[in-house]
């Protein structure tokens, strides 16, 4: 564990708490992509299968349980409790275009051709693009509630913090994880447009609105 990774994990944790807070307080999942949330459930379940057979640390164990549990809870809230507030007609990104290529990439790029390693690779690739249905939806509506933009910012910043963590680990421990690094840089890259609007508008107290 190092400072950058801890900041990244705390940012990830914060993003989920902001998301649940938004759903609970506004009693609505308006502006949220169900597809993106469903992809996160797939990401966490395929990556954290090792919970059942490998012990890393108490921190690791608790965080994994939290990510699986909270993503399932979010999906439940969106699907059942606040279902009427979700508008599927604007959540139209085709996730087949994400899941298919990620599965193929995982079969090609993995550290060992075993079920658990291929699923791990798959989860890394899928996570890097899982935000696309959400960003696509944002693009279509052209605006977002401020709380939703805080959620997206925290979620984007989380992976960005992992980048200095990998550089730090390379110099201190000599470990390199090329799959996670390439996917992590791509994932952070997808947020650049969003970050630009977030930092120039939302952080200055303005509403999140995309130029027409």
């Amino acid at each position: 564990m190092n400072f950058f990774r801890l900041l990244g994990d705390l940012s990830h944790l914060a993003s989920i708490l902001i998301l649940l807070h938004k759903i609970k307080t506004t009693r609505s999942c308006r502006g949220l992509s169900f597809k993106t949330q469903a992809l996160y459930v797939a990401v966490f379940i395929t990556r954290y299968l090792d919970l059942t057979y490998r012990w890393v640390s108490l921190y690791n164990f608790v965080m994994k349980l939290f990510f699986i549990g909270s993503s399932c809870a979010t999906l439940y809230l969106m699907r059942y409790k606040y279902c009427p507030t979700h508008d599927p007609s604007i959540d139209t990104f085709k996730i087949e275009y994400l899941v298919g290529p990620c599965a193929i990439l995982a079969l090609i790029f993995n550290y060992k051709f075993s079920v658990s390693e291929v699923l791990w690779s798959f989860s890394i690739f899928l996570e890097s693009v899982a935000i696309l249905p959400q960003l696509f939806m944002l693009q279509r509506t052209g605006e977002a509630e401020t709380i939703t933009t805080h959620y997206l910012a925290a979620l984007g910043i989380y992976r960005a913090f992992y980048i200095p963590n990998w550089i730090y680990r390379y110099f201190t421990e000599g470990v390199v994880d090329p799959i996670a690094i390439v996917a992590g840089i791509a994932q952070t890259g997808l947020y650049l447009d969003f970050f630009y609007v977030y930092f120039t508008k939302v952080m200055q107290g303005e509403k999140f609105e995309l130029p027409a």
Binding site: D50, Y111, K112, W120, D177
Partner: peptide, 10 residues
């Protein structure tokens, strides 16, 4: 296992 497949990150 080589170092890079430790998967000790989240």
């Amino acid at each position: 296992l080589p170092h890079f497949i430790q998967h000790d990150e989240l």
